[in-house]
């Protein structure tokens, strides 16, 4: 019998090892798997490379993971937002590395990683400083830059509905990187607000097919990052 459901977030992230490469879903607040990230803070794995669009807000979620000095390197497209305070401070002190990747290139590198494509050519960054040192190819009169696929040991993802096979539905713009990160990670770990029986999700509507998911943990009422920010909360509490 296939049952990808694990009972607690702690159990779901228990085998994340020092030096692991981890994709973390979310675009700002939307889709950030806060409970899984907090479980990873409790677990304590260090020297992590984190692939995520942003660097977290305030002192909770991804920002708290960074503040806890568990992250050695961030691969992201937009490391500073209005409410990101932790990353800028550590970056200024030289305590964390940054690989800056345009958002669409980041998405396609992740997609390629999950699809067995090792690299691809893209027009994005041609003529800019971000193309410096990269291989350029001219195809049909246009220039393209070579970008390599991204893969990860783990992905931490938030969704709305899942079944024990790992079939997933997301919520609105919280879908963002979830489907492609599930594909690109060896072990994708998903927190879901609702867990249903196989067959309850219409097969026509499945967004992430279960084959891309290794573990599902039910978090019925996930914390709201915005709410935590308004209350000026810090993790660990």
């Amino acid at each position: 019998m296939i049952n990808k459901v694990v009972v607690t977030a702690a159990e779901a992230v228990a085998d994340i090892f020092d030096g692991a490469k981890i994709m973390i879903g979310g675009f700002g607040e939307a889709g950030s798997p806060i409970e899984l990230i907090h479980a990873l803070i409790d677990q304590g794995a260090k020297n992590l490379t984190v692939i995520s669009n942003n660097t977290g807000n305030g002192h909770v979620g991804l920002a708290a993971l960074i503040e806890n000095l568990q992250v050695k390197k961030m691969i992201c497209s937009f490391p500073r937002t209005a409410q990101s305070v932790v990353f800028p401070e550590l970056y200024a002190k030289g305590m964390i590395e940054l690989e800056l990747v345009p958002q669409g290139t980041l998405a396609e590198r992740i997609r390629a990683g999950g699809a067995g494509i090792p690299a691809f050519y893209t027009p994005t960054t041609i003529g800019t400083p971000l193309a410096e040192g990269k291989e350029i190819r001219h195809i049909d009169g246009k220039s393209y830059v070579l970008e390599y696929a991204l893969k990860a040991d783990f992905a931490l993802i938030k969704c709305k509905t899942a079944d024990r096979y790992g079939n997933l539905l997301y919520n609105k713009t919280a879908r963002n990187f979830g489907p492609i990160m599930c594909m690109a990670a060896k072990t994708s770990i998903v927190q879901t607000s609702s867990l249903v029986e196989p067959g309850e999700i219409d097969p026509e509507n499945v967004v992430t097919p279960g084959i891309f998911v290794k573990r599902v943990v039910k978090i019925s009422n996930p914390l709201s990052e915005n709410q935590l920010l308004r209350e000026n909360r810090r993790y660990p509490w």
Partner: peptide, 25 residues
């Protein structure tokens, strides 16, 4: 919180809207 634009501001979706992942976007 889960219906926002690229500036991370709350928006709405019109009738006939659709959601998709970043690689499709």
């Amino acid at each position: 919180d889960e219906l926002i634009n690229a500036g991370k501001k709350p928006v709405t979706a019109i009738p006939g809207a659709c959601f998709f992942h970043h690689a499709d976007s």
